[in-house]
Write a protein that binds this DNA or RNA. Structure first.
Lengths: 229, 229
DNA sequence: GTCTATAGGCGGATAGAC
DNA sequence: GTCTATCCGCCTATAGAC
């Protein structure tokens, strides 16, 4: 008898939680993560601020939920971009993923800022954010793995001093890939977000006009750096 | 008679202005730019909040002053890094500038965030910030110019579609350099801040350990991309 | 230029009724 | 789970005295 009641209650809880997150995301755009306010969310949702504490004990927990969602969202975008050209070679899949991440960022600028922008002062991300944070980069790993199995990957040279660090990184991230490839991939992954961040945060204003074309060029360079042709 | 009085008054004004900016910078570190508060600055300085309005009419003007200072600061760091190896070849000078920018960022994380991180919601940077913003990149331009005069620069290939945009960018930034070089330099400049931002904003936590070495490797790749050897 | 005082508004968080 | 009421702190910005 109470099982359906519990089911309904659980469903309602999920829906309200989703509504809170959606409104909070809307407010990210207007005021930024630093000023995310439970009270303002509650006001906009027509509920008492105290009621919100039943769903998120405090502001940081709400922030954590938004961060995890954002990482999952960009990870899904990367996976979808890869799958849309699943039959193509590694280089094509790789550039498609870069374009997909950029498209996601342009479409979700405030969620991008939440995860790749300035950290929120006073907020420390808990460990639960770590796995979703790696999801996007794992798409890169998969493509490089394919390329390495085939003939499509030129293993880049590595300065001698980086060898131990590269070995350590490879052991953590992709033990089946050459350390040189893993280390270079991590650097290129970071550089990709340099390009995206500059575009999104206004550094390209009055500098780069045709950004689609410019980005395609830059991504081609990154592909060559990582050993894909 | 009033000239010395005016001089003293002007000096005092400069000193108080500097104290306000210094305290505001300190608060950037604690609360972030979005929450920068004239009132808190005044409180910490032991003056009435209303007195502060004589120096900065509102929060945005204070923010603008801090932004311009930060751009000048990183620009000076880039110039100093270049001058410290003034007798070396372009490739060495170039990597020195990259290291110098990174060192500046690690030493001034909150000023870095102010100019290269998430834009402050509700704040629109006035045109007066544009010239200082370009100062750092101009150091790159100078080095590439030297390299191009000598034999030290391999002009990178450019996809046909980027040609018009590259020509436009070169006309704005460095008309005496090949458009291919200018377009690639802008991309590499952005990528440099991808590396620095990832390190500073925590994306390398649990991923990259020996960051000095890793950065040196990545910068070497960037040098090759831009055509320096 | 600096002060006090004030207007009008925001926020996080909790207690206790229903 | 939701509400009202409340505590206590924060903010921008201005008026008017000195």
């Amino acid at each position: 008898m109470s099982s359906t009641a519990h089911g309904a209650r659980a469903r309602a809880r999920i829906e309200v939680t989703a509504a809170i997150k959606a409104e909070a995301r809307r407010q990210l755009a207007e005021e930024g993560a630093a000023k995310l306010s439970l009270r303002a969310v509650a006001r906009e949702l027509g509920m008492a601020s105290s009621a919100l504490y039943r769903y998120f004990p405090n502001r940081d927990d709400l922030l954590t939920a938004l961060i995890i969602d954002a990482y999952d969202s960009v990870g899904e975008a990367a996976e979808a971009a890869r799958d849309a050209v699943a039959d193509a070679g590694p280089a094509v899949r790789w550039t498609a993923v870069c374009e997909g991440v950029r498209r996601w960022a342009l479409g979700h600028p405030h969620e991008y800022a939440l995860i790749y922008g300035t950290p929120v002062p006073g907020y420390a991300a808990p460990d639960t954010t770590v796995p979703p944070a790696g999801r996007g980069a794992m798409v890169f790993v998969g493509i490089l793995r394919d390329a390495h199995r085939g003939p499509g990957l030129a293993v880049p040279a590595l300065p001698a001093g980086l060898e131990p660090e590269a070995v350590r990184m490879a052991a953590d991230i992709a033990p089946d890939l050459p350390p040189e490839v893993v280390a270079t991939m991590v650097a290129v992954w970071a550089q990709l977000f340099g390009l995206i961040g500059f575009e999104l945060f206004g550094q390209f204003n009055r500098v780069v006009e045709d950004r689609d074309t410019f980005f395609r060029h830059a991504v081609g360079q990154l592909a060559r750096t990582v050993g894909l042709t």
